[in-house]
Every structure is written in structure tokens, then in C-alpha cells.
Design a protein around this nucleic acid. Structure first.
Lengths: 191, 191, 191, 191
DNA sequence: GGCTAAACGAGACGGTACGTCCTGTCTTAAA
DNA sequence: TTTAAGACAGGACGTACCGTCTCGTTTAGCC
């Protein structure tokens, strides 16, 4: 077989600095915690990261994109979809893990900021929904679809309701996402 | 001696112009519809209303406050809390009316903007939650508390879940708030 | 002779408050001293005088007018034009008195403010020149005109030169207006 | 080793735009002529120059500074100090040139504005006096100091008196600065 | 090792809105 | 009719960021 190198144009010029990239993501998360998302500016991110503003605009579309990237990059957020054959147990496991992830320090302010930005910037809203939100919905839907007969409502409705109450508590800073809520939701949805 | 000496401090100076007030509220709603909440500025509200900026800042804390006021002032938003003794019927009536109010033209963009602002501005968030949101929760809670034994979950959880799924659909611009959702929710919560 | 009241139309309504008038003039002078003419506002004058802004605008055209009024009202500023027959003596007396008046506390800042305003506001400039400045020039001209032959330059030039050096020192906050200057000027102009 | 290690700190960032600088100075002079110094705003300068307001505030302290810069930058204002050995001739030459410079179109309104601002803003006053005014005084003092015995008054007094009458005519918009005044002043000061 | 090219930091740029301040006018009740 | 009070439309202030640009510098692959 012929070896055609024509497809990789061997990038020229100085490569992207991963050091800067990480400093920016780190600075963004720090600033959300320090001054809040609203008062965090691209200039402040650049200043704290020790980079130029242009470096941020070169790789992201704005501060919302940076924060979303920082959040997504956090690999520890992976939540497994259990499959023991027992819907109640699987659902309980999934919800406990989901809520635990949201309770990790610093996560809720970021989620609130991202959801807010999604309302204000249509493009970001689309990206946010079809990215982070959709992946969560898919995970839960996959779990629920294995036992459709045991549910009191269609899978799609169940998914929106579960994440609905979760986001409602996050956005209104009301009650915690804890085991009690898990128990109540399991009881609610499973026949 | 008779009671009523309770000081009416004889207002001094030129009274507030109700004409300006209404022009401002109107301009704000128009602008949300025209350019979106994010791109609406206090300057633009003042310009369209034919007032000075100072008149806005004198009576409101910022554009979010104006929009909230404009929305709240709309008296047609009153949703009655039915009490026929039949939980399913009452709940169905209440949800249908609630969803219908939300579906009125121009309402959803405003709700999205207010919820976004509530995330970005802590003070506004508090005002928004303990105002508009709380009044809705109270209404539904009042309805549900009449039949605690027929619910699968505590009243508080039911309330948050119902408004959770409603807001989730609003914020993610997903499926409509319609009779189907009403039916599913009634089935879900009522034993 | 008959007493006909027809010429005094017996003014109706509340008479002008002289108390307010004096409070305003006083407040204006105080404020020039406290914060400087530039940072003195009509609002501040009204506030310090305990009057409404309208009362100021009803009787004066702006803060410059108030200050000019306050300065002019100060009757102690009257400078006599001596006439002993001795030009040198008369001139010396006049200049000493003129310089002494200018040296009184608080006078120079006010003069500087008025001359500045005269540059910025053409109307005020005209009023200022044909009022305060002109009366001073007339006084000196009257004095000098009695001895035209003893002067090295025409009266008009002498007048402008004398007040020129006086104002130059005032406006540039340079050397004091004192007896040395008087002596030098007398020597300069009188043959 | 050779001397010259004296750190030229390798300028960083985008260099100042000389195009913008000149556009701003030009716009300022135009506006003084068009609407007068008082009604000229920084915003209008920026608008006419096609720059941002920040660019003005980055390099000048306000409109007075800009106008002073524009006036000073005009190199044609250089007035030589003649030295023929003949005081009367030298003085006449100097004064004629000085007055001619002041009579150039557009100059007097600017001078009046600057002197006014010098009264209102203490910092600007200091800068103005120790800059433009001082350099003029020095020039004339240099000329006069060569012939102290021929003067009727001390050099310092003569200087202040000459510029005094000049400024008095400028500020009161009275008689022109012309050859007649030159002749009279020479006659006045030179023994 | 020199050359080309992209990314980098720095920071000035044109622009926009901010929230404040003051102007001069007005509208009220009280004197 | 004037007064104190204070709201009003208007408009400039000086600041803060936006997103873009233009510098000199750095770091890579290629010849």
C-alpha cells in the first residue's frame, strides 16, 4: 500500500501552549469562585493566567466557552450507568452519583453560570444543551429504557422531570441534592 | 382621644410621573422582544421610553428589576387555586392554567432572562425567588396540602418537581408545556 | 395734592424672601472658598442655603451671576478717587486702596473665578467687563485725565496697563499686590 | 567595555498611534473654533477625531490638556529674542512678533480658554504657568536683562506689566495688540 | 544554522454601555 | 406669587470591558 503523506500538512509555526491553556482554565474556575461569573472578565482571566487576551480569543469564543471547557475537562465527572437488572437499585445508584457530582465544591456556581449564559446567548445555549445537558439526559434515558413498563410516565418525561427538579434546586439555591431526594424520586417514578 | 394620628407626611416635591413609569415598563418589554434581554440596555429603555436614564435608576436597580416589575405588573397573570375536593381535577386545572400563562406570547423569553439574571446577580436572585417563584410554589403547595395522603411524595418535593420540569423545558427550550405534560404529572404524583 | 396709588400696582402674592437671597449669596461665597468655583454647583448652593434650586434660577442666570452679585454687593469695596492736585500722590493712594481691596481674604479666588467665567460665557463676559471692570477703569481714568501732560502714555493705555499687571498677578498667582508695585507703577507712568 | 548599556526597555505592546494623536489635536482646535471651548466635550473630540474616548484619557488629563498640547505643538509659534545692542529696537521687534503671533487666526480664543481653565483647575494652572507663560516671561526677561540701566522699573516688573497689558486686552477682548501698543510700551519702559 | 510561520505577552485601539452628576425646567403643597 | 422639595428630560462625565489590532519575541518544522 502506498504511503501518502498528503493528508497531514505537518503543522508549521509555534505550537499551541498547553501551559497557557491550562492556566486559563484554572484562572477561569478560580475567578468564578472569587468574584462570581458575572464579574469575571476575559481581561481578568488573562491577567490571572499570565497570558494575553488574544490567546483566549484565539481558542475560545468568550468567557462562557472557557468555563464550559474547564468544567467539561474535569474528567472526574464521569458518571457510570449501572445495569444490575434492578431498576430501583440502578436508578438510586445513578441519582446518588449524579447528585454527589453536583455537590462537589465549586460545581454549583459554575453550573448556575453556564445555565444563565445559555439563556442570554442563543449560540451558547444550543451548544450547552446539545453537549453537557444532552449527554446527561442520554445516560438516564438509557438506564430507564431498559424497564419501560415499570415507569409511571414515558422515559422522556421522566428524564426531564428528574433533571428538572435537580436544576430547580440548583438555580434557586434551595434544598440540597441528597439521598432523600433520590429516595423520593425512585418512589415517584417506579411503579 | 381618637386613634388616627398616624402621620401622613404630606408628600413634598413633584410627584412621581406614572406616565414615565408605564412608558419605561412598556419599553422594556418591547425591547426584550426586539433585541433580546442581553442586548437591551438601560440607555435603550430610556431612549425608547423618552425618559432620562436617571429616572430609571431612581426607581429600579437595573434592567432586571424593570423587567421583573413589568412582568409582575401584568395582572392577568393571576392563577386561581381551585378547590373542588377532587385532587386530580384541581391539579389538572391549576397546571393547565399555569402552563397556559407561560405560553402567552412574549412570556417565555422574559422568564428565561429573569432566571438568568437571578443566577448572575445574587441580590436579584433573592428577590426573584422570594417574590415570583415563591408565590407560585405557595399556590401549588396550598392546593396539594389539602390531600397529603393522596400524594406519592411530600408536598415540598412535589412542588419543586412540578416547577422543576416546567422550568427545565423553559430554559432548555425543549418540549411545550401542554395538556400531555399535565396529564403525566397528575398521574405521577397522585396515588 | 392728591394721593394716587395707581402707579404702584400693589404687588400680589408672596414677596421675595430677602432671607433666602442673602443665604444664597453667603452660601456661594462659602462654597467658592470651600470647594472652589469649578466644583461649586447650583445644587450645592441651594442645599447649603436651604433654598430650592428654582429660587436661584428665578433671580440669577447661573452660579457666575450669583458670585458676581455676592462680590458686588460687598459695599466695602468702594474705592474713592482722590483729588489733591498731586498726580503722584493721588495715583499712589488709589493704587494702594485698589490693591488692598484685592488682598482682602477670599477676594482673589472670586476674582479669578469671575474672569474665568467671563472667558467661557460670552454673555457673562460682556456683563462682567461693562460692569465691574469698566467701573474700575473709569475711576482710574478719571484720576489720570486730570493730568494728561504728566503721563508718558495715553490715559487709556495707562489704565489697561495698570489693571493688566494687577490681573496678571492675580491670574497667575504670582507676586503680591503691594506698595512696591504701587511705587514702581507711579514711577513708570508719571513723567 | 563601552559605556552605553543604559537600558532601552524594548517597548512592549502595540505602539501609540500617531495618527490618532494628530487627529485628536486637530479635532480639538477645530472644535474650539466651531462651538467654543466651553461647549466642546471630550466626547465630541473623540467623535470628530474618529477615536475612542479612552484614547484621549489615556494620554491627556482632559480637554484643557489636549488644547494646550495642540497649541504648544504648533511650532510656528517660536519667537526669536533679538540682540542688536539697541534695547528700543530689540524690544520693538520682540513685541511686534509677540503680538503678531497672538493675532494669528484662532489663537486668541484658545488663549482665553487656557487662561480660564488655569483659573478653574489648579493643576492645570500650575502646568500652564510654568510651561507656556514662563517660557514667554523668560524670553522677554532675557532681552531686558541686557540693559538694566535703561529700564524705569526692575526687569521682573517690566515683564509682568508687558504681558499684563497683553493678557488684559486678550481677556477683555478690548483693543487690538498692534504697533501702537508696541510703541507706547517701548516709550514707557525705556528711559 | 538560517528561514518561515504560527502562537505568544503586551498593550493600544475604536467602540459601547455603565452608573453618576449636574443642568435648567416642571409640578406639587405650603406660606 | 414665591417658596422648599424634589422629580423630570437631557447630556457629559470618566471608567470598564469588549473584541481587534499591531508590536517584538519565542518556538517549532523545514531547507
Amino acid at each position: 500500500m502506498a504511503v501518502t503523506a498528503h493528508k497531514v500538512p505537518t503543522q508549521r509555526g509555534r505550537p499551541r501552549s498547553d501551559e497557557s491553556r491550562q492556566a486559563i482554565l484554572r484562572a477561569a474556575l478560580d475567578l468564578v469562585a472569587d468574584v462570581g461569573y458575572r464579574d469575571m472578565t476575559v481581561e481578568a482571566i488573562a491577567a490571572r493566567a499570565g497570558t494575553g487576551k488574544q490567546t483566549i480569543y484565539r481558542w475560545w469564543r468568550g468567557k462562557a466557552d472557557v468555563v464550559l471547557d474547564a468544567m467539561t475537562a474535569d474528567a472526574a465527572r464521569k458518571i457510570p450507568v449501572p445495569d444490575t437488572g434492578d431498576l430501583r437499585a440502578d436508578l438510586r445508584t445513578f441519582l446518588d452519583a449524579t447528585f454527589a457530582a453536583a455537590r462537589r465544591p465549586g460545581v454549583i456556581p459554575v453550573l448556575r453560570a453556564l445555565m444563565a449564559e445559555a439563556q442570554l446567548d442563543p449560540d451558547f445555549g444550543t451548544a450547552f444543551d446539545s453537549g453537557l445537558l444532552q449527554s446527561r439526559r442520554e445516560a438516564l434515558a438509557t438506564l430507564l429504557r431498559r424497564h419501560p413498563d415499570e415507569l409511571r410516565v414515558p422515559v422522556a418525561t421522566a428524564v426531564e422531570t428528574v433533571f428538572g427538579v435537580m436544576w430547580y434546586r440548583i438555580l434557586t439555591r434551595r434544598r440540597r441534592l441528597d439521598a432523600t431526594l433520590t429516595r423520593e424520586l425512585v418512589e415517584l417514578f417506579v411503579r
